[in-house]
Amino acid sequence: MNKGILAAGKLLPRYTIADYQHLKGDWELWDGFAIVMSPSPFGGHQTIATRLAYAFSL
């Protein structure tokens, strides 16, 4: 892990591919910064979201 940039007064770490391979969960690596990804909607949530999107598009 390398030192990164300052954000809100804190030094954010920069990750390497080797670091990324050891992360647990759904993460992406953007220019050395680890970004946590939220899970995709599924099931009932996705059905409701689709219906709402259709209803508001009319």
Results as ranks from 00 to 15, higher is better:
Ala34Ile: 04
Leu58Val: 00
Ile48Asn: 10
Pro41Leu: 04
Arg14Trp: 00
Ala34Leu: 02
Lys24Asp: 09
Ser38Thr: 05
Met1Trp: 09
Met37Lys: 15
Tyr20Arg: 04
Arg14Phe: 00
Tyr15Leu: 12
Ser38Asp: 08
Ile48Asp: 05
Tyr54Lys: 11
Phe42Lys: 13
Ala49Gly: 01
Gln46Pro: 00
Ala8Trp: 04
Ile48Gln: 11
Gln46Tyr: 10
Pro41Cys: 02
Gly44Val: 02
Ile35Thr: 05
Phe42Val: 14
Gln21His: 11
Ile35Phe: 13
Tyr54Gln: 09
Ile48Phe: 14
Gly4Arg: 02
Ala53Asn: 06
Ser57Gln: 14
Gly9Gln: 09
Ile48Val: 14
Met37Glu: 12
Lys10Gln: 15
Ala34Phe: 02
Tyr54Ala: 15
Leu29Lys: 09
Asp19Cys: 11
Pro13Asp: 01
Asp26Ile: 01
Tyr15Ile: 04
Phe33Thr: 03
Gly25Ile: 06
Pro13Phe: 01
Ala55Trp: 09
Lys24Glu: 14
Lys24Ala: 07
His45Arg: 09
Thr16Arg: 08
Phe33Arg: 13
Ala8Asn: 15
Ser38Glu: 05
Phe42Gln: 11
Gln21Leu: 07
Ala8Ile: 01
Val36Gln: 15
Leu29Asp: 05
Val36Trp: 00
Met1Ala: 14
Pro39Ala: 13
Glu28Leu: 08
